[in-house]
Write a protein that binds this DNA or RNA. Structure first.
Length: 278
DNA sequence: TCCTATGTTGTATG
DNA sequence: ACATACAACATAGG
């Protein structure tokens, strides 16, 4: 159930595979996961390829490999985790499990890299060739990058003046990697009600929204994305995150009750004492 | 049984 | 054409 920081955490699960060749590939192409990719391409190019590096952008991961062919073709393996996708490393020689979709066997390193996803909202993308594929290059600039400007946010909100803030924070073309919990966290910190219309914000409020988006993303990447624990850690008790699902949960700042409702099509949690509608 | 779930997308409507 | 809303996807667990 990953957003940008959890995706960064999960990306690093396959680090033990870096620098090692993939001897064999086990594919279980099920419709959803391979919706945009022909599994035959993976079967053709991946055997013998070496895993060179990986990176994450938004909720997408990229694994770069070099094919074993004469041209040393660069390979681009993209994985999106959807709601329930996982990456793991297993000891070599274990049988496939029911929810596995892609297994990269690295017998020389006595291990296999596994992508599994029981709910199958995840996606595998693949490209062979020197140039980065569109599914990678067209991801919007990170909210932690200089390209994520106040001006861009302001323009985006004006364009969607009648939509609720919560819905717009989930739009990946401007807020790549932000998901349900981060959107709520950002709005809570910015003291903005999730149902506020984007066009109604004052310049000061837009500035606050922009700044808190950057802050939450940075902190989440530091606390969760860079963690070296067997499971990804949750943010501290001072964040809304820890209280949003509690029955009778209290706002960590005001100590007043939190509220929950569906806004922008998703369950949303906010602190009425600090996030007002008008 | 019914409802929910940290995601995306196709389709309908305005 | 563009913005907005929502069902659909597939599965498990409360």
């Amino acid at each position: 159930m990953p957003e940008l920081a959890e995706v960064e955490y999960v990306r690093r699960r396959w680090n033990p595979g870096l620098g090692h060749p993939v001897a064999t590939v086990r594919l279980h192409p099920r419709a959803g996961v391979f919706k945009t990719t022909d599994p035959a391409l993976l079967a053709k190019h991946l055997p013998g390829a070496r895993l060179d590096s990986s990176e994450a952008a938004a909720k997408q991961m990229l694994f770069r490999l070099t094919a074993a062919d004469r041209a040393r073709t660069p390979l681009w393996l993209g994985i999106h985790l959807g709601m329930t996708g996982e990456l793991t490393v297993r000891p070599a020689g274990l049988p496939d499990e029911k929810r596995d979709h892609l297994i990269l066997d690295q017998p020389a390193a006595r291990q296999s890299l596994v992508f599994s996803d029981f709910r199958m909202f995840g996606r595998i993308q693949f490209h062979a060739g020197p140039d980065a594929p569109a599914w990678w290059t067209e991801i919007a600039p990170a909210v932690t990058s200089p390209a994520f400007t106040l001006e861009a946010v302001s323009t985006f909100l004006r364009r969607r003046a009648r939509a609720p803030l919560k819905a717009v924070l989930l739009m990946q073309e401007q807020f790549p990697g932000i998901g349900n919990w981060m959107a709520d966290e950002i709005l809570w910190r910015a003291a903005l009600h999730p149902a506020r219309r984007c066009g109604d914000l004052s310049p000061v409020e837009v500035k606050k929204l922009h700044a808190e988006t950057v802050w939450v993303a940075r902190e989440a990447l530091r606390l969760i994305g860079a963690a070296d624990t067997p499971e990804w850690p949750d943010p501290p008790k001072t964040w809304l995150f820890q209280h949003r699902w509690e029955d009778g949960g209290l706002c960590p700042r005001t100590k007043q009750p939190l509220e929950r409702a569906t806004i922008g099509g998703r369950t949303t949690c906010w602190s009425p004492a600090r996030q007002k509608l008008s």
